[in-house]
């Protein structure tokens, strides 16, 4: 058992290692960013931005963000297996710290993607969000929810055979609560400041927080069985 400060330090070390190797190759970020920009372009030139209501826009945004997450977030663990560095990592850090580091890395990666995709989306769709603060909160918490549900799925997938195809199949049913709440909150943010919208958005935000906390807690409990079997 490692103490909590030790755990935090080890997690940050794993995060730092991943950021460094990502910075050297820029494999994940460039692949994910290009994927999401391509998807966004397809959406924006296939429909007129003026013909869509806020629900459809929010759904499009989160479809792009979800599948960009699906294309990139599994790399964090698959890379360790492919480069045959998983064993070294298993020896040098505790399972909890590995999970913590990978979760933080996925949050950083997906936040970087969201930070580029969301403004680009507003630009291409010619949309001025009625409630910018809510949009930022929805994007940030939705990103957190996606990262927290898919990190342990990435770990599971990295130890199975059909890695690429399996990841989206496994992650979608588990991500659905987070995804649909993020879509709901984003739609409210784009639509405006009606009183009933505010209560709906508050419920969505609460679900996103509770869902992320639940996924991270159960992942921490179960990760050891995936990592050290």
């Amino acid at each position: 058992m490692t103490s909590s400060s030790n755990w935090g330090r080890e997690s940050l070390a794993v995060l730092w290692k991943d950021l460094l190797s990502e910075f050297r190759t820029r494999y994940s970020l460039s692949a994910v960013l290009l994927f999401s920009v391509t998807a966004l372009a397809v959406v924006s030139f296939s429909v007129s931005p003026y013909s869509l209501d806020p629900e459809a826009k929010a759904a499009f945004l989160w479809i792009v963000l979800f599948f960009s997450a699906m294309s990139g977030l599994s790399r964090s663990f698959v890379r360790e297996e492919e480069a045959r560095t998983a064993l070294a990592l298993r020896v040098s850090a505790s399972a909890d710290a590995v999970y913590g580091g990978k979760l933080l890395f996925n949050i950083v990666l997906q936040s970087a993607v969201a930070a580029i995709v969301v403004p680009l989306f507003l630009l291409l769709m010619d949309t001025r969000p009625a409630n910018p603060a809510l949009l930022v909160a929805a994007a940030a918490l939705g990103t957190l929810a996606l990262a927290s549900s898919s990190t342990i799925i990435a770990a599971i997938v990295s130890r199975a055979n059909a890695k690429g195809a399996l990841f989206a199949v496994l992650a979608f049913p588990l991500s659905l609560p987070g995804l649909s709440s993020a879509i709901g909150a984003t739609a409210e943010a784009l639509r405006g400041n009606m009183p009933e919208a505010a209560t709906g958005a508050a419920a969505d935000i609460r679900v996103l927080i509770a869902y992320s906390a639940l996924m991270i807690a159960s992942s921490l409990l179960l990760f050891d069985y995936v990592w050290n079997d």
Binding site: I152, I153, I156, L170, P173, L174, L176, P177, M215, S218
Partner: peptide, 11 residues
Amino acid sequence: SAVYALLAFVT
């Protein structure tokens, strides 16, 4: 698969 089943069960 046990880990996946339990994750699904809490979701």
